[in-house]
Design a protein around this nucleic acid. Structure first.
Ligand SMILES: [Mn+2]
Ligand SMILES: [Mn+2]
Ligand SMILES: [Mn+2]
Ligand SMILES: [Mn+2]
Lengths: 172, 172
DNA sequence: CACAGTATGTAGCCTAGGCTACATTTTCAA
DNA sequence: TTGAAAATGTAGCCTAGGCTACATACTGTG
């Protein structure tokens, strides 16, 4: 240390000016471009957070749909095992699915998707496949593609998905 | 209530067998492929969760590095504004950065990155750029590319990033 | 037909990451 | 030089998503 990075006089160690932002003198509200220059970035982070918050719901409905499609039923224990979480965790998340109108379930009777749930599941399944296909198409090794797609899919917007589709069609 | 949800003859509505899993008779641990068929999927979900948990740290160090690079300092308020969160939220996350050895900060003195923090920031910055470039290269509209990259980047593994790099070089 | 064993559900705890309200410190302009 | 405004920090609350430990319900045998 002893870099003495002083703004004006602040002694040793870290530390810098902290000079207030220009503070546009109150008498001159004119001029300037107004916007703090980065209203965009904040909204991008915000949207990324929103996308992430829906990720768990998406993985659940996709998995439930798969389980029902292959074995005819989706039981909490199976869901938990496939997701790699404890069964109480799965049960609590299933409760949230119900709360949000994506699934229905009665105690000891297994989990089923509502129409909204099925619809979401189908979209998610399609998107997942396209993401994997795109990764493979640009040369990502199979296992990495499968692994990364599980997280990537939830951040692929409709516009991006459409572009992926066009790219895949173009490249056969 | 009064649904009489019985195990075998469950009448109408939702409801299904819930037949216990085969329960491999204890005397015959032989045969079979052993593995429950999907140990992979659980690990994929687990890794995606892990990747996500590091996302916030990554965005913070990248942003702090940018702020210092352009304005010479990274103040909690600026960080909060750029991320679109309240300043207490930013301060609490900065505390976690310190805890994890990625940043140092003294009250009212701004935030600085440790060597580990700078290193991570550089990796994250590079990865972010490559992800955006790849999206653009496959035909994703600019704004969607910028938006989606903010979430996607955190789920791109080294193997996938390398493949992206090769693809970009190949396609110029 | 009982009962052991599995699946399911509940309670209670933890951390990360959000927020608002309020307190304190620093800076800048009068 | 001083005091108002801005930045920073603290306290306390909330939800999502994890977990373990324990309680309850089912079901297929013996
Ligand atoms: Mn997923
Ligand atoms: Mn998926
Ligand atoms: Mn990001
Ligand atoms: Mn980024």
């Amino acid at each position: 240390m002893s870099e003495s990075p002083r703004g004006r006089s602040i002694g040793r160690s870290i530390g810098r000016s902290l000079g207030r932002t220009p503070k546009h003198t109150p008498e001159s509200p004119a001029g300037r471009a107004e916007l703090p220059a980065e209203p965009t970035q904040a909204s991008r982070f915000g949207k990324a957070r929103t996308a992430q918050s829906g990720a768990l719901m998406e993985d659940y409905v996709e998995l439930i749909s798969d389980l029902i499609g292959t074995g005819g039923e989706a039981r909490p224990t199976d869901i938990a095992r496939r997701l790699g979480v404890s069964h109480p965790t799965a049960i609590k998340t299933i409760a949230r699915l119900k709360r949000e109108g994506l699934a229905v379930a009665k105690p000891y009777r297994g989990v089923f998707l509502t129409e909204a749930g099925e619809f979401l599941a189908e979209r998610v399944r399609t998107r997942h496949r396209i993401v994997v296909d795109l990764l493979l198409a640009v040369g990502v090794p199979a296992e990495a593609a499968e692994q990364d797609a599980e997280g990537l899919e939830h951040h692929v917007s409709d516009a991006t998905l459409a572009a992926f589709g066009r790219f895949l069609r173009r490249a056969q």
